[in-house]
């Protein structure tokens, strides 16, 4: 049975950029222009989960992304690695969404797409780290959801999921349709093959504005938020590191032990 899959992919500033480049200005996060945005890493894991199912069972993958001024080279990576279609909810009105307005718009778009068996999201997005959107979409659609999956398989119309728990994992079974949030243990997103990159270059994403999914601008983005951002700030750190030296690395290591004793840490 071919499976219809939707993978939600968010464009975020590179979360692994050096901490020093993250600067708050006017209640907003700013990064230098040379730090390129990426697909949020857990969303990449989610895409990989879908690709593995497509390989094994067959099916169609639609990547879905919400934002404004999405960088085509970044977001089209989904097509390059093997997604069949890319839909962008792209408009000024979608800016400054919170978890609520993001999940609401994505769920509304998913209803418009209509056919879905599996919806994949990353366990959390690497900008706001809230970890709500996936489970929120499932609530709005009224479908079951399993979070922090490290393995996903489909057999006989059922999904079998390895869900990470504090000291191990659980094997969970659920019927289709269902929503799954994915964690990094599932594995990195594969590299795009040249053929995929060329095919992706020829494809254009479908762009939907709020009206295309039947929403008013007042229901999305900043206007549709449930939370108010009172303040964004960077606490100052005053920690200072004492580097322990030595004539050789071995001696520095031994000196470190002596230092810890002197500092009464032992």
């Amino acid at each position: 049975m071919p499976i219809n899959m939707i993978v939600c992919c968010k464009q975020v500033p590179d979360p692994e950029a050096p901490p020093a480049v993250f600067k708050v200005a006017g209640n907003k996060m700013t990064l230098p222009a040379d730090v390129k945005p990426v697909i949020s890493p857990y969303d990449e894991n989610a895409l990989e989960a879908a690709l593995r199912i497509k390989e094994k069972t067959g099916g169609k993958i639609t990547a879905l992304s919400l934002g404004n001024k999405l960088v085509r080279d970044v977001i089209k990576k989904s097509l390059a690695v093997g997604a069949d279609e890319l839909i962008l909810l792209e408009d000024e009105a979608f800016e400054e969404s919170d978890s609520w307005s993001t999940a609401y718009a994505l769920a509304t778009a998913i209803k418009k797409i209509g056919q879905y068996d599996l919806i994949f999201c990353g366990r959390q997005a690497a900008d706001w780290d809230a970890g709500q959107t996936g489970l929120g979409i499932a609530e709005i659609l009224g479908i079951p959801a399993v979070s922090v999956a490290r393995k996903v398989e489909v057999t006989d119309g059922k999904v079998r999921i390895e869900q990470v728990i504090p000291d191990g994992y659980e094997i969970v079974e659920v019927a289709l349709p269902t929503l799954i949030t994915v964690t990094s243990e599932l594995g990195d997103l594969r590299y795009a093959a040249l053929k995929g990159i060329m095919a992706a270059a020829k494809k254009q994403p479908t762009v939907w504005k709020p009206a295309d999914i039947g929403l008013e601008p007042s229901q999305v983005g900043a206007a549709g938020r449930h939370s108010k951002l009172n303040k964004l700030f960077q606490p100052v750190k005053e920690a200072k590191c004492e580097i322990i030296e030595g004539d050789s690395p071995e001696e520095a290591g031994a000196n470190l032990a002596v230092k810890l004793r002197e500092a009464k840490l032992l």
Binding site: P19, A126, W128, L229, L232, F233
Partner: peptide, 13 residues
């Protein structure tokens, strides 16, 4: 914390 701990944010509702 937000942005992986690179900033903090205060929210209300």
């Amino acid at each position: 914390p937000v942005y992986g701990g690179n900033a903090q944010a205060t929210f209300s509702s």
